[in-house]
Every structure is written in C-alpha cells, then in structure tokens.
C-alpha cells in the first residue's frame, strides 16, 4: 500500500476517533477529551511554536486552545473535520494572543556569525540561515506572517490555510504573494548565496545574511 493510502486510512481513523470522543465529552464524559489532547497536542504545540518561537509559551497557548475547544465543543457542527475546526479555533487564539503580546524576536546581534565563515561546518550555516529566515518572517506585517506561517505548517495547502484563518482562498494567495515579495527583498543576499552555491558546490562560505535584514 502506498504511503498516501496509509496516511488516508490513519486520517480517517483519527476523524472517527475525534467524532467518538467529542460525542462522549458532550454527553458528560470529560475524560474522553484526553484522547483529543493526545491526538492533537503535537500539531497544536508546533503551530503555536511557529507563531511565537518560544517552547514554554507555545505549550501555554496550546493548553489555552484545548481549553477553548473543550468550552466550545458544542459549536462544532461536524460539517467540517474536527481538525479543521480545532486548527481554526487555535489559529484565532494564537493570532489574537500574539497581537496582544508580540513575541520577543532575537536581535540580529544575537544571531551569531563565525569569525571565519570558511572554517565552519554546514550545521552552523544551516542554523544561521534558519534564524535569519525566522527573523525575516517575524518582521512581516501580521496578516502576511500569519498566512505564510500557516501555509508552510499545512504543507503548502492553500485551502487548509484559508479554512484555518477563515479567509477566502484568493485572499490567502494574495497575502502569500505579497509576503514572498517582501521576503525576497529581505533575504536577497541569502538567496543569491544559495544560487551561487548550487552553481558552484565547492563554494560554501556563509554570507553575512543578518546584515541585510
């Protein structure tokens, strides 16, 4: 059986378990909510982490999302998948939470760069690039940042992103387009460096990417 087929079967099983647990919780069996928490803790914490880049805060936000889901479980109409409803609720919560208390982003001075870029290994360069990309994403206006973060979280699926944000797909595409244009300017030196590295793999020096941001 193909990997996609296995994933689909697992997804269907999850959906059935969600429906069953939700029905039990609504009937008064609070303990049945544990199944929902176990199934969705990893995606919800990771989604929160993509917004705030702080592990402790991500867990707090995910806990609040589960509490809100528990309180509003009766409002899930089963028209959409439980996961869609849960992600939409969590996304709304995370976005409003981060608008009230924006995350503290790492100053560029703290994104360390090697004294001699040629002497470092690829792991450092990778971390350095990652920090710069996340920093650049965090400098985007919230509406673009939220769409971009969710788009990559949902494995580049526009409809899922649109459902999570309660936005039309056209708006999501437009925001993605603008976010990418802004990021292309911010990450230009890094992109140039990557392209150069691809053309000439021997050249692996790390550009001073953070200076450009």
């Amino acid at each position: 059986m193909s990997a996609t087929g296995i994933q689909q079967i697992m997804g269907n099983q999850r959906a059935a378990d969600d429906r069953q647990d939700a029905a039990k919780v609504l009937a008064g069996d609070t303990r049945a909510f544990e199944g929902i928490v176990r199934r969705w803790q990893v995606p919800l914490i990771n989604l929160a982490y993509r917004f705030c880049r702080d592990r402790g805060r991500a867990e707090d936000m995910a806990q609040e999302a589960f509490l809100r889901a528990f309180r509003n479980l009766a409002s899930w109409r089963e028209e959409s998948a439980f996961s869609t409803w849960l992600f939409s609720l969590a996304t709304n919560l995370y976005c409003s939470e981060l608008r009230r208390h924006p995350p503290i982003t790492l100053p560029f001075d703290e994104v360390h760069e090697p004294a001699d870029p040629h002497a470092t290994d690829g792991g450092f360069e990778e971390r350095n690039q990652s920090a710069a990309v996340h920093k650049a994403v965090h400098t985007l206006p919230p509406k673009y940042r939220e769409v971009l973060t969710l788009y990559y979280f949902h494995e580049m699926d526009v409809p899922s992103t649109a459902r999570s944000l309660n936005l039309p797909e056209g708006t999501v595409k437009a925001h993605l387009f603008r976010a990418r244009n802004l990021l292309r300017d911010k990450l230009k030196p890094m992109l140039d460096h990557r392209m150069a590295s691809e053309r000439n793999p021997a050249r692996r020096s790390s550009p001073r990417i953070t200076e450009s941001l």
Binding site: Q129, M156, R194
Partner: peptide, 17 residues
C-alpha cells in the same frame, strides 16, 4: 529559490517540538 528556502526552514521536520 525563495520557496525552497522557506520550505527548508519554515516547514522543516527538524523544527518539530
């Protein structure tokens, strides 16, 4: 290039908590 860069760093499995 930008898509790949974002895909590498925003959707990286190594980022999973």
């Amino acid at each position: 290039g930008l898509d790949r860069l974002l895909d590498d760093h925003l959707a990286a499995a190594s980022d999973q908590l």
